[in-house]
Write a protein that binds this DNA or RNA. Structure first.
Length: 963
RNA sequence: GCCGGGUUGGCGGAAUGGCAGACGCUGAUGUCUCAAACACAUCUGUCCGAAAGGGCGUGCGGGUUCGAAUCCCGCACCCGGCACCA
C-alpha cells in the first residue's frame, strides 16, 4: 500500500514509437493501463470503498456512520461461462458513478456486488462442459471478478458473496423455514408464527375444518390442517411441467405462448405434489405498497397487472335436481346475471363428477357438438378431460379462437330468471382463476358469445348497446335491459348502479356477496434440479414434513456423481419429474434427532428455484459475516429502515433491467414483507427506488441465408453492407456470441483504457434508454481524457503545468456553470449531459491556451473523478495531494458566476428571430422592451407596421406582434 | 385485442412552452510532418445564393398559444409488457 502511495508517477507509455518520442508523457492506452492497475491495487490495499456499519465486525469511523446513508445496489450478475460483453457493466458503471458522487457529497455509501450463482443456466453449462456446477460456477465467478475489477468499480469487497456459499444459503434455508413456520392471520393482516395458530386450535378459539377437537386429530391430520395455512406448503395441484427441462416451473417462468422462458420448450399442466409459497396472502399489500415506492410507472403497472385485482361478486347457482349441489362462480359483472344462459366448469373442476347424470337429457340427443358423440355424459367428459390434459399450453393458446367443450348433461338454475341453464365443461375456463367456474353471459362477453354461437346456446342482451351497434357481445357501458323479475328490476340502471343493486339482492338472499379476486397465484417453489438450495425439510414415516432445526443448517448440497437433470422428449406430456438428489440414497435416508429421539427420516429431494437466493441478498450485504443472525437489527435499521419519504424503508437506489418486473422484484418484495411481519427486519419493502437501465444493442450482420457474420468483418460501402464481396443486411439486436457481435470490455479497455470505456458507456445517451454500441465513437471520450491530461500535464516533460493565481472571468463562469450543471445532472443520474458539460469546460480550457489555473484544474478533476476514477486519482495526486480523490468534497458552484455577465436576448417578430441583444441578466422588462423596439433590425423588419402587443421574458426573449 | 413507452441531422443524442440540433461520432478543408498516423484549427440539418442573406425543417394531419420538438385531438410506424383472467 505504501509503495503505490509514494510512487504515483506513471512509468510506461505506449502508442506508436514516434508518438512516444514526440510526447513521451501523452495519455495513451498503455499509460491508462498503468495508471488503472496501480490505483486498483491501491484501492484494494487501502480499503478505500469500505463503508462502516454502526456496530459489529464491520463497524468503523463514527463520523462516517453519522453521515446520511446511501445504499446503492445493482441487480447482481449471473456468472455465465461466456464472460462479460460491454452491455453487462452499463448498470454497474452507472451505480458506481452515482455512488462516488454520493460519497463526495457527504454520505456513508454502501456499494458492493455479489453473485447469483444457483440455477438452470449454470447447471446446463456444467452439463455441457462436463464439469461439476460448483467448479464451473466458481471459475466463472473468478473470471467475472477479474473483468469487473478492471472497470474500477468502487465496491466494498468485504461484503461480497455468492448465493452458492454455504454461509449464505444457510440463511436462505433459514428464511424458508421462517416462511414454512408461519401463517397469514387475516384478522391481524400479517404473518404470525405457526405456534400461534396451533394455540388457537388447541384452545378451541379456532375450529378445525372438520369441527373435531385438535386433540383428537392424528399427526397426519394436524399436518394437513396446518399445511392449509403455512406460507410455504406442499400441495397437489396442476402445475407447469416442462419435460424438455425436466422440471416444473413457476407461472412467471412460462411465456405467453405456453413455453419455458429458458430453453423455449413446451409446458404442460400436470397434477404433481410440489412446494408453493402463499404469495397470494400478500396480494393486497403487494399492490397497495407500490404507491409509496419510487419505481418507474411502467414496472409498477406490470406488477399491478400481474397481481390483477378485480372487484366483483361470488354467486351460488343451484343444480337442478340436486338440492345439495352448488356451483359457485366469480364474476366482475353481476349486473348481467339475467343474461346468464349457460354455465361452464373448468376441466379440472372437482364438482363435475358429482353433477353428471347417467344419461343424456332430451335436449342433448342428436347434438354431436354437445355430446362429442359419446354415449353418456361420463364418457363425454372423460374424453374431453383427457384431451385437455394432454394438450400443451401452446396448443391451448393457438387454438384459443375455436371454442371447444362438452355438455355435462346437468342443469343449473339461474337465480333471477328461474331458467334451467345447461352446464358445460370447457377449457376456456381456467381452474386457477376465480372459482374455476363461470356463469356465461354471451350478450356481454366475447368468449361466451363465441361459445354460444358454436354450441347453439341462447343469447340475451342485458345492457343496451349504443345506437347502430353491429358488433356481437357488447362489453361497454349502457343501461340495463331485460333484467327484471317479480322481486327486482335493474332495467334502466347504469352498470355501476346495477352491480351494487344486484349484489345487495344476492346478499339478502344468501346466495352471493361482493368479493375481490386476484390473478396472482401462489408461487411454485420447487424444482427437480441439482444446482439449487436443498430444502431443510425431512419426512417421517407417515409422510409428515418436519423442519430441520436451525442447528442443522446449512443443509449442504451433497456431492454427487450424477448431477444432470432427468429430461424427456420435450413434447411428451406423459412423463414424470425425477429429482437428481433422490438418486443419492445415503443422503436421502437419514437418522436424526429432531427433539423426540433418533428416528428415521427421508429428505426432501427437490431444490429451490434460482430466485430464492436473490430474494433477500440486499440484507446480507449489510452484515455478511454474521454467524448468529441473518442480519443484525441495528445494522439493518441503519441501512434499510424507514425514513422521511421512504415509509417502508429499503435500498436507496436499485439499478437493473426491466425483465425482472414480475419475477425477482415481486418475489423479493414478498419475502421482505414476511420477514418484516415476523420482526426480523424494519423495512417492509426491499427497494425504495428502482431504476431500469436500457440495453446496449448491437448491429447484427446477416448473410443471404440469414446467418450472422462476424460484425467486425462487415464493411459499409455506399450505404450498403458487405462481408467480403457478399452483400449482408444489417439489423439491430442483442449483443452476444451467437450473433457474432459481442464486444468485450477487455478489448475496449486494452485499446483505450477503462476510464474511456466508462465515459463512453455513460455518454451514449440517457441511462434508461436502449442504444446501439458503436466502437468507432469510443475515441471521442478518449480524446476528452487526452485533452484533460494535456491541460494539467506537459506531454513532453511530464511536468504539471498548472499555475497559481486567479483565472480570468470567462473561465470562472465556465467553471461554475459546469460545477452547477454537473452536480444537478449527477443527482438526477443524467450522466450523458454531465459529461457534455465537463467536455465543454475542458474544451474551453484547451481553447484558451496557456497554463490552466490550479483552482480550475483541481475542480475539473473533482468533477470528472466519479466518472473516470483512475485518471481522477492520478491527476489529483500529481496536483500535489496525498490522499485519495474518492473522499474529497464535490465542488460547489458560486452562484455569482453561474449566471453570465451578459446574456443574449433574442427579439422575435411573430415568433421568428429578427435581432439579438447583449443585455445584463438583471435587466428590467420595460428597459428590455425599449431596447428591442428601438433596435434597427427590428424597426426594419417591422417595415412601419404598428405594434399590437409585446411579450417580454427578461432577460432572454422579446416577442413583438405587429398590428 | 388491451396496456405502457417511443419517432429530432449521415449516426448516438441535447433542448420539457421561449435562439432546434449542446456534447460526441462521421465527413470536408487546413496546420504540423519527407510522408502517414496522432494532435490541433475551421466548417459540417436541408434548399436557394459567389457572398450577405433568406426559405424550409423535430413521423403525418389538425388544434391551443404572441410563441409548440415540448401541451391537446386524430392517424401511421417502431419497441416493450399482458393476453380465453370471467
Amino acid at each position: 500500500m505504501s509503495e503505490t502511495n509514494s510512487s504515483p508517477v506513471a512509468s510506461g507509455t505506449g502508442g506508436a514509437p514516434s508518438a512516444e518520442a514526440a510526447a513521451p508523457h501523452r495519455y495513451t492506452a498503455a499509460m491508462a493501463a498503468d495508471i488503472e492497475a496501480r490505483w486498483q491495487d491501491f484501492w484494494d490495499a487501502d480499503g478505500t470503498y469500505e463503508a462502516p456499519n454502526p456496530s459489529g465486525d464491520l463497524a468503523g469511523d463514527a463520523d462516517v456512520v453519522a453521515r446520511p446513508k446511501k445504499f446503492i445496489m445493482d441487480m447482481f450478475p449471473y456468472p455465465s461461462g461466456a464472460g462479460l460483453h460491454v452491455g453487462h457493466p452499463l448498470g454497474y458503471i452507472a451505480t458506481d458513478v452515482y455512488a462516488r458522487y454520493q460519497r463526495m457529497t457527504g454520505h456513508n455509501v454502501l456499494h458492493t456486488l455479489g453473485f447469483d450463482a444457483f440455477g438452470l443456466p449454470a447447471e446446463q453449462y456444467a452439463v455441457q462442459t462436463g464439469t461439476h456446477p460448483r467448479v464451473s460456477t466458481e471459475a466463472n465467478i473468478e473470471n467475472m471478478k477479474i473483468q469487473l475489477r478492471r472497470l474500477g468499480l468502487g465496491h466494498d469487497k468485504r461484503r461480497s458473496f455468492a448465493t452458492i456459499d454455504p454461509d449464505y444459503y444457510k440463511w436462505t434455508q433459514w428464511i424458508f423455514l421462517q416462511i414454512f413456520n408461519s401463517w397469514y392471520d387475516e384478522s391481524a393482516g400479517k404473518a404470525r408464527p405457526i405456534e400461534d395458530l396451533v394455540a388457537q386450535f388447541e384452545s378451541g378459539e379456532r375450529a378445525t375444518p372438520t369441527g373435531r377437537p385438535w386433540s383428537e386429530l392424528s399427526a397426519v391430520e394436524r399436518a394437513d390442517v396446518l399445511g392449509g395455512h403455512r406460507l410455504a406448503y406442499a400441495s397437489d395441484a396442476p402445475v407447469n411441467w416442462c419435460p424438455g427441462l425436466g422440471t416444473v416451473l413457476a407461472n412467471e417462468e412460462v411465456t405467453a405462448d405456453g413455453r419455458s422462458e429458458r430453453g423455449n420448450f413446451p409446458v404442460f399442466k400436470a397434477n404433481l405434489r410440489q412446494w408453493n409459497m402463499r404469495i397470494t396472502a400478500y396480494a393486497d399489500r403487494l399492490l397497495d405498497d407500490l404507491d409509496a415506492l419510487d419505481w418507474p410507472e411502467a414496472i409498477k403497472l406490470q406488477q399491478r397487472n400481474w397481481i390483477g385485482r378485480s372487484e366483483g361478486a361470488r354467486i351460488d347457482f343451484t343444480v337442478d335436481g340436486d338440492d345439495d349441489a352448488r356451483i359457485t362462480v366469480f364474476t366482475t359483472r353481476p349486473d348481467t346475471l339475467f343474461g346468464a344462459t349457460y354455465m361452464v366448469l373448468a376441466p379440472e373442476h372437482d364438482l363435475i363428477d358429482s353433477v353428471l347424470p347417467a344419461e343424456w337429457p332430451e335436449e342433448a340427443r342428436g347434438k354431436d357438438a354437445w355430446t362429442g358423440g359419446a354415449a353418456t355424459p361420463a364418457e363425454a367428459v372423460a374424453e374431453y378431460r383427457k384431451q385437455a390434459q394432454t394438450k400443451s399450453d401452446v396448443e391451448r393458446q393457438t387454438e384459443h379462437k375455436d371454442k371447444t367443450g362438452v355438455f355435462t348433461g346437468a342443469y343449473a338454475v339461474n337465480p333471477v330468471t328461474g331458467t334451467r341453464i345447461p352446464v358445460f365443461v370447457a377449457d376456456y375456463v381456467l381452474m386457477g382463476y376465480g372459482t374455476g367456474a363461470i356463469m356465461a353471459v354471451p350478450g356481454q362477453d366475447e368468449r361466451d358469445w363465441e361459445f354460444a354461437e358454436a354450441f347453439g346456446l341462447p343469447i340475451v342482451r342485458t345492457v343496451r348497446p349504443p345506437e347502430g351497434w353491429e358488433g356481437e357481445a357488447f362489453t361497454g357501458q349502457g343501461p340495463a335491459i331485460n333484467s327484471a323479475n317479480d322481486e327486482i328490476s335493474l332495467d334502466g340502471l347504469e352498470v355501476a348502479e346495477a352491480k351494487s343493486k344486484i349484489t345487495e339482492w344476492l346478499v339478502a338472499k344468501g346466495i352471493g356477496e361482493a368479493t375481490i379476486n386476484f390473478r396472482l397465484r401462489d408461487w411454485l417453489f420447487s424444482r427437480q434440479r441439482y444446482w439449487g438450495e436443498p430444502f431443510p425439510i425431512v419426512y417421517d414415516e407417515d409422510g409428515v414434513a418436519h423442519a430441520l432445526p436451525e442447528s442443522m443448517l446449512p443443509l449442504e448440497l451433497p456431492e454427487v456423481d450424477d448431477y444432470s437433470p432427468r429430461t424427456f422428449d420435450p413434447d411428451d406430456a406423459d412423463t414424470q419429474p425425477e429429482t437428481p438428489l433422490s438418486r443419492n440414497a445415503e443422503w436421502v435416508d437419514v437418522e436424526l434427532d429432531l427433539g423426540d429421539g433418533v428416528k428415521r427420516y427421508r429428505r426432501e429431494t427437490n431444490t429451490m428455484p434460482n430466485w430464492a437466493g436473490s430474494c433477500w441478498y440486499e440484507l446480507r450485504y449489510l452484515d455478511p459475516h454474521n454467524a448468529d443472525k441473518l442480519v443484525d437489527p441495528e445494522v439493518e435499521r441503519y441501512w434499510m429502515g424507514p425514513r422521511e419519504g421512504q415509509p417502508h424503508g429499503g435500498v436507496d437506489l436499485y439499478v437493473g433491467g426491466a425483465e425482472h418486473a414480475v419475477l425477482h422484484l415481486l418475489y423479493a418484495r414478498f419475502w421482505s414483507k414476511v420477514l418484516y411481519d415476523l420482526g426480523h427486519v424494519s423495512s417492509a419493502e426491499p427497494f425504495h427506488k428502482l431504476f431500469n437501465q436500457g440495453m446496449i444493442q448491437a448491429y447484427v450482420y446477416r448473410d443471404a441465408r440469414g446467418f450472422p457474420v462476424p460484425a467486425t468483418e462487415a464493411e459499409e460501402r455506399d450505404g450498403r453492407f458487405f462481408h467480403g464481396d457478399e452483400p449482408v443486411r444489417r439489423e439491430l439486436g442483442k449483443m452476444g456470441k451467437s450473433l457474432k457481435n459481442a464486444v468485450t470490455p477487455d478489448e475496449i479497455a486494452a485499446e483505450y483504457g477503462a476510464d474511456t470505456l466508462r465515459l463512453y458507456e455513460m455518454a451514449m445517451g440517457p441511462l434508461d434508454v436502449s442504444r446501439p454500441w458503436d466502437t468507432r465513437a469510443v475515441v471521442g471520450q478518449y480524446r476528452l481524457l487526452q485533452r484533460l491530461w494535456r491541460n494539467v500535464v506537459d506531454e513532453t516533460t511530464g511536468e504539471v503545468t498548472v499555475v497559481d493565481g486567479e483565472p480570468d472571468e470567462a473561465t470562472l463562469r465556465a467553471l461554475h456553470k459546469a460545477i452547477d450543471g454537473v452536480g444537478q445532472d449527477m443527482e438526477a443520474m443524467r450522466f450523458n449531459t454531465a459529461i457534455a458539460k465537463i467536455t465543454e469546460l475542458n474544451n474551453h480550457l484547451t481553447k484558451t491556451g496557456g497554463p490552466v489555473a490550479r483552482s480550475v484544474a483541481e475542480r475539473l478533476v473533482l468533477l470528472i473523478a466519479p466518472l473516470a476514477p483512475h485518471i481522477g486519482e492520478e491527476l489529483w495526486r500529481r496536483l500535489g495531494h496525498s490522499g485519495s480523490v474518492v473522499h474529497q468534497d464535490f465542488p460547489v458552484a458560486d452562484p455569482a458566476y453561474v449566471v453570465d455577465e451578459t446574456v443574449t436576448c433574442v427579439v422575435q417578430i411573430k415568433g421568428k428571430v429578427k435581432a439579438r441583444l447583449e443585455v445584463s441578466p438583471a435587466i428590467a422588462d420595460a428597459e428590455l422592451e425599449a431596447l428591442a423596439v428601438g433596435d434597427p433590425a427590428v424597426v426594419a423588419a417591422l417595415g412601419g407596421a404598428g405594434i399590437r402587443k409585446v411579450i417580454v421574458r427578461a432577460p432572454k426573449l422579446v416577442n413583438i406582434v405587429p398590428a
